[in-house]
Design a protein around this nucleic acid. Structure first.
Lengths: 251, 251
DNA sequence: AGGGCGAAGCAACATGGGTTAAGTCGAAAC
DNA sequence: GTTTCGACTTAACCCATGTTGCTTCGCCCT
């Protein structure tokens, strides 16, 4: 997930292409066209805003490295993380098509973004129906994940919710990885986990301890790591169909 | 919302066009093209399935009258309603683009659907970039509503959740109505409200009583009706930006 | 090495919402 | 008009999760 200064600028988009290929077929010509799309590189520190609620950005950022999240707040100060984005994910088709941002988009870890200009993006998509299609599929899958999160927060208890999230992230990281990754460091603080799962930090702490006792999860220097995916899947009642990984699946 | 036997078949798509016009600009030519799209009419009774999890339908249904909902279940039998659709809403672009349905789609009231065949739909969209754009915007707005629901279920208490849902439905119904509608009958049972808001029927009942005492809500023959929108908005901390009603707003 | 600080850990207590179990109501069926 | 059935109502009790407040850890800074 780190920085590779020896990679050419074009190659940096490889992860974005790999993500699209996980659910859509693209000709080598299409892939070539994406790879040579001009972009500007932006680096942000944790918690910096990529996009603010109310913004009118006409730009399409794609996450090259690091994690990011979407977040909304209610009037009484409650915060809800409504989406989690990993490398390869496009962060905001919405501002290309709709007027005004309805949520905040922030860096979770240090991130690198490829930012496409609207006109370049439209010039890419217009004559290439397969790419246009892949974009729509990408948007639809994000919607599918939101629906699964609704089920998770609305109907599962704290233990199930946390286990489900861990499973999802595990599968999604596998999906973009070049080789099988075993355990990886989970980048959310307990407070962020609480804001994501509709719980409080204190209760997240209790719940992690239970998962740890079951051997489902390990902790190395305060960072969460998957211990046993099968146990997690059992606890979470996890099925990956909602991720719609139809092609090139590793797992 | 009822049936009008004197309407020509083409005119029946008027509500779908009006919905698209509420967020996108379409030329009269584009509108004409949509209106003359061939479709088959389907009628379903409450709780009948429009689409089942696991289905591979290659078809695009649009709701002409009545209400419908998307629903998922967890292994322990918990049910979560993850979206509510009203007349004019397209119900399933996803099955045109993605492989397999990840949720169930059911009629809430008696409904009438216009069902488009994939090839007709693609022939409509391919040469008309403005329509393609309107479809994408429609999909993105559904995503925005899902995110707001995540905030609602994850961070608001029962009273706020219910008030917020009532507000949302009020605004959405205004949006497709030809003239100002005042109160309208709310079509969900208390059990369905519970499944939608991540609560239990018993607690929905308690919560309705509070809203009723505040004058925010009335009940006529066991059906919920909006009493005072402003009170509801205050209780729910409601803002309509997430609905992205940019054009032709009535309210 | 010490100080500062954000995150994690933890215990005691409070409560919103869940659960269970009885009703009651209203409309459709006959 | 009686039966039936689903939806609504209500009460009593319970528990998962929230709240408060304090302590500890690990790491960065100087």
């Amino acid at each position: 997930m780190g920085d590779d200064p020896f990679k050419s600028k074009e190659d940096r988009l490889g992860i974005f292409i790999r993500k699209l290929l996980s659910h859509s077929r693209l000709s080598t010509d299409d892939q070539q066209a994406i790879a040579s799309l001009p972009f500007s590189l932006r680096r942000l520190e944790p918690n910096e805003y990529i996009l603010r609620e109310g913004d009118l950005a006409k730009v399409c950022p794609v996450l090259l490295s690091g994690f990011a999240y979407r977040q909304k707040t209610s009037a009484d100060g409650g915060r809800q993380i409504v989406a989690l984005k990993i490398p390869g994910d496009a962060l905001d088709f919405q501002s290309l098509y709709v007027d005004i941002a309805d949520h905040n988009l922030q860096a979770l870890t240090p991130v690198e973004l490829a930012v496409f200009a609207q006109k370049d993006f439209e010039a890419l998509v217009a004559p290439r129906p397969n790419i246009a299609r892949a974009i729509i599929v990408d948007i639809l899958i994000e919607g599918s994940i939101s629906r699964e999160w609704l089920l998770n927060i609305g109907r599962r208890n704290a233990l199930g919710r946390l286990a489900h999230l861990l499973c999802e992230l595990y599968y999604r990281v596998q999906q973009i990885a070049l080789e099988e990754v075993g355990a990886f460091e989970f980048p959310l603080t307990q407070e962020q986990l609480a804001d994501l799962l509709g719980l409080t930090p204190v209760h997240i702490n209790r719940t992690i301890k239970i998962l740890e006792k079951e051997g489902a999860v390990k902790r190395v220097s305060r960072r969460l790591t998957i211990g046993d995916v099968d146990t997690l899947r059992r606890i979470a009642d996890f099925s990956d169909v909602y991720l719609h990984r139809t092609l090139d699946s590793l797992v």
